[in-house]
Design a binder for these strands. Structure first.
Lengths: 306, 306
DNA sequence: GAGCGTTTGCAACAATTGATTCTATAGAAT
DNA sequence: ATTCTATAGAATCAATTGTTGCAAACGCTC
């Protein structure tokens, strides 16, 4: 009945298996139960496991100690981490050691590393299967739209701006809802069915963004939301909601994952537009070159044809 | 083989999402945490979850009841079962498998996943030891500055905007160099030694950004650069250069890593300012509350003390 | 069989768990 | 204004958790 193929994490079960022969009988019984039911370690109470393994509770404590853990808790934690659903972080686990070293060096360094880690994890997570499916759905909506409006306020404004900017490199039907003197919303005046609103909003949701998205939905526009929860007020209004986590070890919510989602979204649309998008981008480049918008070692030199 | 590795158990989260709108605010907070961290339900104690969700313990009990469970225990059991590994599944690299499946499904999905992976990787990479050291150096410069100017044009504008916005939540000495009618640069007129310019620029570097950064350096300002190469024109001018990769499987350069670096940078400064920054942020929040800038289903309630 | 260290389990412990009860409060209805 | 109902939070409770101290039982050597 032991099923070692699905074993939690190899290092730990290996460790147990290796120590097994030299263990006293009762500890072996306990160890065996752990090997056979790795998940239970994280999900059941210690006493419950002891009950099922047919040993007194102390034995579990002793086993953990024997294996080199200070606590039963730290033993359990290890199994719990292994059990967590691929919180993509696992892929970056080789960086865990780095974090240790940095923590020793400076707390600032550790904080920075942790923030970066969290962001990377969130991005990987929001680009998993479910996430990419939503992204594709959103891309399809936007691709077919007559006009595309981008709306992001306060902390999300940068995301809306960037999405609109990149989108504008290959399409001319995008509008950023952001005007001086609070006139930004006027652009929606002629919008309706067949148009799409891309709204970016994370907690705390700005009232204006929510209300305007609701208004757009009422107009019959399709709404694409980049937001932080499936129960966020804008997700409720949206045909497609792209979910991005925002929690971070810092004071602020991380906007980076939303930014990443927006970039991927626009890139997807570009990829689908294919040759056409490429041409548009080349045109844009030539135009910018004409104004020497971009820097080159010697100003004004033409690009090598490569 | 069913894919249980990703996405929580749909039935339960659907149930929560469905009941969500009719839930009172505090229960929503709890429900939201559960939706966003499904694994924690099984792995953490109820009280610990309540702590993290920022609600009193009772609320978790009430949530379970409200959802139709007799107990919190039965609620947890359901999540635990969903979390358990099917016992005979071979363990394989989850990500590789996912990519395979997505490639089979659609090339769009694969592209999105690859872009996401590239971004996550870049961010993790730019937050390694060397990267964080540079971030800390930059944070130190900015922290001590009299005035902080943010400059990012075109594709980098969003980054500059966001950095300035978040910085402005706890400090009043930040200026975004971006004015209508190309007047943005005028703000530098009174700048000089003791001030800092944060310039964000990646290939293709906008001429204006490079020239203005050079001008700032000539004025005696310290320059912090977020850029894509050690030999980029702005890195040469900078006291501290934060390097961010921008390559991606899509048409465009990825700006997300630069965005992430900026977010981390500002978060670091906030962390160093400590209590002071927190207070400033609280003040900002109160001010925004007064104008009901942020959305809430019903007027805000006070937070429990944990 | 006496002496030794190891292994084992019981009982008791403080800490923490999830649940209950009760009071305060906020909004809505009158 | 006032009452009424729904909601939130504090204090409290019994149950359970993981751990510890101690003594009995075991296996081994001499």
């Amino acid at each position: 009945m032991p099923d070692l193929t699905s074993a939690a994490d190899p290092s730990l079960s290996d460790r147990i298996a290796q120590a097994f022969p030299s263990l006293p009988p009762q500890l072996q019984a306990a160890a065996r139960f752990v090997l056979d039911h790795p998940d239970d370690v994280a999900l059941l109470s210690m006493r419950e496991q002891a009950r099922r393994a047919g040993v007194p509770p102390v034995t579990m404590t002793r086993l953990a100690r024997q294996l080199g853990f200070a606590d039963y808790a730290s033993f359990r934690d290890l199994q719990a981490t292994a059990l967590r659903r691929p919180s993509h972080t696992a892929e970056f686990s080789h960086r865990a050691g780095q974090l240790q070293r940095q923590k020793a060096q400076s707390s600032d360094g550790a904080l920075a590393a942790q923030i970066g880690w969290a962001m990377a994890d969130h991005i990987a997570g929001s680009h998993d299967e479910a996430g990419t499916a939503e992204l594709i759905a959103a891309a399809t909506l936007i691709e077919k739209a007559r006009k595309v409006y981008f709306l992001g306020l306060r902390s999300c404004h940068a995301v809306a701006f960037h999405a609109q900017y990149v989108h504008g490199l290959f399409r001319d039907n995008g509008v950023l809802l952001d005007g001086a003197g609070d006139t930004g919303f006027d652009a929606l005046r002629h919008a309706g069915t067949g148009d799409v609103l891309v709204v970016i909003s994370v907690e705390p949701y700005t009232t204006a963004a929510v209300e305007r998205a609701a208004y757009a939905a009422r107009l019959g526009m399709a709404v694409v939301a980049i937001t932080d929860s499936r129960v966020s007020p804008v997700a409720a209004l949206a045909q497609a909601s792209i979910l991005v986590p925002t929690d971070t070890p810092s004071f602020f919510h991380a906007i980076t994952p939303a930014f990443a989602a927006a970039e991927t979204l626009i890139a997807l649309i570009a990829a689908r537009s294919g040759e056409q998008a490429l041409n548009a981008i080349r045109n844009a480049e030539h135009q910018l070159d004409a104004f020497s918008t971009y820097w080159s070692r010697r100003p004004q030199r033409r690009k090598p044809k490569s």
